[in-house]
Design a protein around this nucleic acid. Structure first.
Lengths: 222, 222
DNA sequence: CGGGATCCGTTACGATACTG
DNA sequence: CAGTATCGTAACGGATCCCG
């Protein structure tokens, strides 16, 4: 009785937060699906095209698993447009610090980004946002507007936190250019050497804040 | 010429820090191997017994991959004891924030820990350490001594960081009991309800620091 | 006994084709 | 557009065997 559609998924079977987390989000593609959904709700097809190489049946299976774990939910759109989108639940948003930590770990390993092959959102989240230092941001207020390869995005530093406003009033800093050049900046390239592929505009104070909060290398540790 | 032992490992092929990170540490078992090595050097057999269920050939393969990526290295022991241990390289230690983020994500999902089935090191790292709040630790100095199921471990909060001294002078706080009870504390159980499975000894100030730095829930975000 | 290597059945994944 | 179905291949899991 009751469909025991068996969670036969292989579990590590360990009483450890890390192992339990990996039981839920450790499968191939899962974290990349969550990365995309962290940018906002996506339709099935949006996800597919954002994840070149994923088989459609696998995407379906992963989404079902994530729904079962209540990390992702379907939302109905009333509009004439496509009906259903996938979105992170509040529980699901808790994966974001994991994504940031992974981005920070992987950033130095990315080889020679090429203009046009880096997606702006990946440059901002998988690169720039990963450098955010909460400890250095305690007394900083900074609104950054990105214009990368024609896409516009915003980040805002406020009270030691990094948030993504849909849009904002006047930016303190505007970073304009190619997504690849932003990645290079995050990897330690000199700002001057990136002109004109990347241009940063803003007050001297805003530039100091940028340096302090994002670009100064820092090593947190246990 | 040259053995092209083909990195045939499937790559996500994305210019994104997260994707690149997962290319290296996203395979099954890899992060749990790194978790164990984050506690210190281990021999092959130690790793095997710490990871019940892993096939020996798979452990070999993972270790080779991690060596190739320079996240793990072999070290020779001169002693009469077993010859070689595996250890994290400085590069490899950069995975630690990822482990902490995962632990934090997974902690609330762990079901009813049972005395004797939780390893002390997992309770401390996969549980307690995951709750560390750098922002709340800025002006705190705190040495904690754990005595869990007979194992002794130390953590030290210093200048907004969490570090693991081999040992320390006098502890400000001693937490003694079962590893399972510590996990329950981390999951929000009341300290009083855990006596006598867990006993916390220390000054009123040290207890306040414990509460402030570890036990107060906090939500960081992008 | 520590540190693997080999073999093999099973599962998960990747690619493509098909459908409401 | 949003999946389902099918199928070949690669990865994993478990056991056994080997060597210093």
């Amino acid at each position: 009785m009751g469909d025991v559609t068996a969670r036969t998924r292989k579990s590590y079977e360990q009483y450890c937060g890390i192992a339990v987390a990996l039981d839920r989000i450790g499968d191939r593609w899962t974290l990349l699906i969550l990365r995309e959904l962290s940018f906002g709700p996506h339709r099935f097809t949006d996800l597919r095209s954002a994840l070149p190489g994923i088989a459609s049946n696998l995407l379906t299976e992963r989404l079902r698993d994530l729904e079962e774990y209540e990390l992702v939910e379907q939302r109905e759109l009333p509009a004439p447009a496509a009906r259903v989108v996938y979105a992170l639940t509040p529980q699901g948003r808790r994966i974001i610090p994991v994504l940031r930590a992974l981005a920070r770990f992987g950033l130095p390993m990315m080889a020679d980004p090429v203009d046009g092959e880096v997606k702006p959102r990946h440059a901002i989240f998988g690169g720039f946002g990963a450098l955010f230092e909460p400890l250095a941001a305690l007394d900083v207020e900074l609104r950054i507007r990105f214009l990368l390869d024609g896409e516009e995005h915003w980040l805002e530093v406020s009270h030691g936190r990094l948030v993504r406003p849909d849009t904002s009033a006047q930016p303190d800093l505007t970073i304009e250019g190619t997504a690849a050049a932003l990645v290079e900046l995050c990897q330690g390239a000199d700002e001057a050497s990136l002109v004109p592929r990347l241009r940063i505009a803003g007050s001297a104070q805003a530039r100091r804040d940028l340096e302090q909060v994002f670009l100064a290398t820092a090593t947190t540790l246990v």
